[in-house]
Design a protein around this nucleic acid. Structure first.
Lengths: 240, 240
DNA sequence: TCAAAAGTGTTCGTAGTACACCCATGA
DNA sequence: TCATGGGTGTACTACGAACACTTTTGA
């Protein structure tokens, strides 16, 4: 997986790898509340054999960076991301005692719809070396992956406050309560429903579909959709 | 410099380079107003021979990423940065028609003090292949370096609004007018002196030294200093 | 009729903006 | 004394937080 040990000539250019921090909202084991989860893979080789690590691997010679991230994501979770963004390039000499590896790390969001409906659960449960963990209750990680995950978490929570990435977790239509629950699960605190509604409506990011969600045991809430698709690859190239 | 063409085996791991977008405030040629400037180096090899490019080069086998950026900065400008931050890793296959290169790009700020006092001006004027350009009036650049510079500019201007990086451009003590002029030069618009003063004082980032700047032909302004040094390397590792 | 969530209205404190005005110095 | 920037005061606006209140459904 990431940071695999292959031969290295002295003075050679450092090896290049791409890893991804994948986020999805899943019901927490004990409380049942939805919480942020991250899939990790168990290392089957030294160093750090037996420890959990981020999914990733070497960059293909004819592969764009984000494509490599997408490929590892598909291999690990059998899912396509609703959002994918570069996080940081980690290249300190001290991050691995073995071979020198520069890891370009991405972070990805996977929607509830995909995570629930797709073959991900089966695939993951069938493979004892892949497992989803509560982002706030992680096991010991290999290399500097704990630092990386913490940084990705900080980035996700920070960006949630000013961008529309929450939409990457919900389906094509959704109620404002569902959207608010996404924010609450990610930020880890409750939000005022009234103020959240006004904040979202004022942003003009969302429009009512005219439909209502039925089957609840209370007043049926309006369904909304985003008025423009979320930018799937917010790289600097698509900026100006 | 960056993206140099060395041999590549088919299917080999892509080459790794480190480049830096270096910013400094220098008086503009015509108007004399201080404006953002960037040093560029002229390519002496194909591809893009004769065009201007960002300073950079391959990553040393035993060198941290930021150290490589610092080294290229020193080679190009003979200066040490007052601020250095990773910008983005550019690795698209299409960015160079020749060899596949992944460039990890940093952006750096060089203070007025250093830029004026140091041997930079002489060094740069002595070498016809290194030149400072107005950031808003750049020549044609090699590779995707124009995209990279535009992104770095966007990042600098965005970060200027909520962080203390302006301090990287001024000396150890400074007047609030000097600090405001830094903001104005970077953002490209005038700011209200009264409101700027209150904004800075409210942030508690700055404390008066008790000294005054004399020699002006008006009321002598107070001198300030930052109450804590600017974080020189704001990498994710120093976050939590 | 009651519980529960949807949805609306109102108030308050803070932060940014515009701009009037006084202060201290050199010329 | 005047010009010039240093520095203070004040009113207006926008926006988020807190919270009371009405509405609409299922049970």
């Amino acid at each position: 997986m990431t940071d695999s040990s292959t031969g290295d000539a002295p003075g050679a250019t450092p090896a290049l790898a791409v890893s991804t921090v994948i986020f999805s909202l899943l019901p927490q084991g004990e409380t049942g509340r939805t919480a942020l989860h991250i899939p990790l893979v168990r290392r089957i080789r030294e160093p750090y054999r037996g420890l959990w690590a981020l999914p990733g691997g070497p960059l293909g010679a004819d592969e764009d960076l984000s494509d490599a991230a997408r490929r590892h994501l598909l291999d690990t979770t059998a899912l396509s991301p609703s959002y994918l963004e570069q996080l940081y390039a980690f290249g300190s000499r001290s991050r691995s005692a073995a071979e020198r590896v520069v890891s370009i790390v991405y972070w990805a969001l996977v929607s509830r719809e995909n995570a629930a409906a797709g073959p991900a659960a089966a695939l993951v449960q069938g493979d004892p070396n892949v497992c989803w963990f509560d982002a706030d209750d992680l096991p010991a990680l290999a290399f500097d992956h704990r630092t990386i995950v913490d940084y990705a978490l900080w980035r996700l929570r920070t960006k949630m406050e000013y961008s529309r990435i929450a939409g990457a977790f919900v389906g094509s239509t959704f109620t404002l309560s569902q959207l608010r629950e996404v924010h609450e699960a990610v930020l880890g605190r409750d939000l005022d429903p009234a103020n959240f509604r006004r904040m979202v409506e004022a942003s003009d990011a969302v429009v009512p579909t005219g439909e209502y969600l039925t089957g609840t045991k209370h007043r049926p809430p309006r369904l909304y959709r985003y008025n423009s698709p979320i930018d799937l690859d917010p790289s600097p190239l698509g900026r100006s």
